[in-house]
Design a binder for these strands. Structure first.
Length: 484
DNA sequence: TTTTGAGTTGTTCGA
DNA sequence: GTCGAACAACTCAAA
C-alpha cells in the first residue's frame, strides 16, 4: 500500500512559544509528514533591539518549557544560533523539509528579514507559509473609512470589535511526527541566555515562564482578579492585574485564548480594552515602523530634552527621593516587571520632571523588563512623552506624591520595595523628607544617607516642563501661517 | 469638502 | 473638603 508522503515541515518558532492555538504548528501537524520545531537565536538580526537581560532570562526558561512540552508529543525543539537563513536551509536539507511555517512578527527589522528569508527559501523550492498567531486582528485589515491606519485608540478598538469576535482558539496537536533523524541542535543552556553572575533570584521567585505557567496565571487572574479589575488594577500593592504581559510577549499564550477566556466574564470589558491597547501598539508599530527611534509627531524632534546622566542613573537605581518612583524602579530591577500604574508614574517622572528623553526610558525598560515588547514599549513611552499616537496632553504631569498617596495609601507597596522606609508611619511614607525629626529618629532613618531627598522639586520641575512644552508649541504654531 | 464631536490612566486653582 | 474650570489647541475619524 502506498501512502502519499509529505515532506517535512519546519515550524520556525519565535515569539509564539506554545503548542495550543499555535496556527503555524497546527497547520504543520495537519499537513502530514514530519514536523521540525526550530528556534533560531540570532540577536544580531534584531538591530538595536536584541532581547535585553530580563528577556533573555525569560527566554531561557520559556524555551526549556517548550522543549519539555514538545517531548510529550514525541517531538523536540531544535535550537540553532547564528544567521537565520543558512540555518533554515541547512535544517531543511537535513530533514527533507519542503515547507516552512512561521507566525508573523510586528518588529520592523524582523519583517524585513522574514521577507528576505521567504524569498530565498522559495527560490530553494521550500514553501513558506506565514500565520497570524500574535494578534486578534491583523494590522492590514483594520482601517479607517479613508483606508488609513488609526492613530486614536477608541475608534481603532471600535473598528476592531466591529470586525466581529476572533476565531476561537484551537487545541494543541496531540502528536507530532518526528523526522527520521533530528538535525544537530545546540543545547538551550549553550545559548548563554542566563545572567552571569546570577542575579535572577527575584525573577525566578516571581514568575513561571512557559505555556503552563501562562495558563496557570490566566486561571488565577480569572478567579481572583478580573471581577475587580477596573479598580484593583490601580493598586500596585495588590495583585489586581493579570501579569500576563511576558507570557503574551513570548506567545506562551495567545490573545485569542485570552479573549476567549474573558469574553463572557463580568468585569472583563475593561481588561479586554487592555488587550486592545496591545493590538493598537502593534498596529501603530506596523504602520509607523520608525517610531521605536523617532517620535510619531515630528515637532517633538525639537523638544529641549536635557542630558542628565546623574539623574538618569538615580532614576534607574530607584534613588530619586520620591518613594513611589523608587519603589517602582526597584520592583523592576528585582522582579523584571513593574505595575502598570507605577510605570506611568516613573515614566512621567523621567520625561516631565527630569526632561530626559523617552528613548532613554524605553532603552532601560527594554533591558530590564521580562515583558519588553517593542510595540508596547514604544507606544507607551511616546504616549507618556506626549509625542505618540493618542498621546497624553502635555499638561498631564503626574505628581508622584499625590499618585503615591492615592494608589498606595498605606504605603504598602513602597515599604515592600524601599525597605528603608518600612519603619516610617504610613502618613510619611510618600514624603519622608517632610517627616518630623522624631518620626525619622524612631524609624532610624537618616535622610541623604539611608534614603535620598528628592533629586528635583516636583513643583519647580512641573513648571519647567510646561515651559519646555511651550517652546515646541510656539514654533510649530501655524499662526505664522506658512507663506504660500 | 467641510463640519462636528471626541480624545486611557492628571493637577491645580479658586469658589 | 468638594466641585468645576482651566490647562491649549490640535488631530483624528466619521458624517
Amino acid at each position: 500500500m502506498v501512502r502519499r508522503m509529505s515532506g517535512a515541515t519546519i515550524v520556525w518558532l519565535r515569539q509564539d512559544l506554545r503548542l495550543a492555538d499555535q496556527p503555524a504548528l497546527a497547520a504543520a501537524a495537519e499537513r502530514g509528514g514530519p514536523v521540525v520545531p526550530l528556534y533560531l537565536h540570532a540577536p544580531e538580526e534584531e538591530g538595536d533591539w536584541p532581547p535585553g537581560s530580563a528577556s533573555r532570562f525569560w527566554l531561557h526558561h520559556s524555551l526549556t518549557a517548550l522543549d519539555s512540552d514538545l517531548r510529550r508529543l514525541g517531538s523536540r525543539l531544535v535550537v540553532r544560533r547564528g544567521a537565520s537563513l543558512p540555518n533554515l536551509l541547512d535544517v531543511a536539507r537535513r530533514t527533507g523539509a519542503n515547507a516552512m511555517h512561521l507566525c508573523t512578527r510586528t518588529e520592523p527589522l524582523a519583517r524585513i528579514r522574514d521577507g528576505l528569508v521567504r524569498r530565498e527559501l522559495e527560490a530553494a523550492g521550500i514553501e513558506v507559509v506565514p500565520f497570524n498567531g500574535h494578534l486578534l486582528y491583523e494590522p492590514e485589515i483594520v482601517k479607517t473609512r479613508g483606508g488609513d491606519p488609526f492613530k486614536v485608540f477608541t475608534p481603532f478598538w471600535n473598528a476592531c470589535r466591529a470586525l466581529g469576535d476572533p476565531l476561537p482558539p484551537r487545541p494543541a496537536p496531540s502528536r507530532l511526527e518526528a523526522p527520521p533523524a533530528w538535525p544537530v541542535s545546540e543545547t538551550i543552556a549553550g545559548l548563554g541566555l542566563l545572567p552571569q553572575p546570577d542575579w535572577a533570584e527575584g525573577m525566578r521567585f516571581a514568575w513561571r515562564p512557559g505555556e503552563r505557567g501562562a495558563q496557570q496565571r490566566l486561571a488565577e487572574f480569572l478567579r481572583d482578579g478580573v471581577n475587580d479589575y477596573a479598580t484593583g488594577r490601580d493598586r500596585p500593592a495588590a495583585a489586581g492585574t493579570s501579569r500576563l504581559s511576558p507570557h503574551l510577549h513570548f506567545g506562551e499564550i495567545s490573545p485569542r485564548q485570552v479573549f476567549d477566556a474573558a469574553r463572557d466574564r463580568n468585569g472583563s470589558a475593561a481588561w479586554l480594552r487592555e488587550i486592545g491597547w496591545r493590538e493598537f501598539a502593534h498596529h501603530v508599530l506596523h504602520h509607523f515602523p520608525h517610531t521605536p527611534e523617532k517620535p510619531l509627531r515630528p515637532e517633538f524632534d525639537r523638544f529641549p530634552w536635557r542630558r542628565d546622566p546623574d539623574r538618569l542613573a538615580a532614576w534607574q537605581r530607584g534613588r530619586t527621593g520620591y518613594p513611589i518612583v523608587d519603589a517602582g524602579m526597584r520592583e523592576l530591577w528585582k522582579t523584571g516587571w513593574m505595575h502598570n500604574r507605577v510605570r506611568m508614574i516613573v515614566a512621567s517622572f523621567l520625561v516631565k520632571d527630569l526632561l530626559v528623553t523617552w528613548q532613554e526610558g524605553a532603552a532601560w525598560f527594554w533591558d530590564t523588563l521580562v515583558d519588553a515588547d517593542l510595540a508596547n514599549n514604544t507606544l507607551n513611552w511616546q504616549w507618556t512623552a506626549g509625542c505618540g499616537a493618542d498621546a497624553a496632553p502635555y499638561f498631564r504631569i503626574f505628581n508622584p506624591i499625590l499618585q503615591g498617596r492615592r494608589f498606595d495609601p498605606e504605603g504598602e507597596y513602597v515599604a515592600r520595595f524601599v525597605p528603608e522606609l518600612l519603619r516610617l508611619p504610613a502618613s510619611h511614607r510618600h514624603t519622608p523628607w517632610l517627616a518630623p525629626a522624631r518620626a525619622l529618629e524612631e524609624a532610624e532613618l537618616v535622610l541623604d544617607e539611608d534614603y535620598p531627598r528628592p533629586i528635583v522639586d516636583h513643583e519647580t520641575a512641573r513648571k519647567r516642563a510646561l515651559l519646555a512644552f511651550q517652546t515646541i508649541k510656539a514654533r510649530s504654531r501655524p499662526g505664522s501661517r506658512r507663506e504660500v
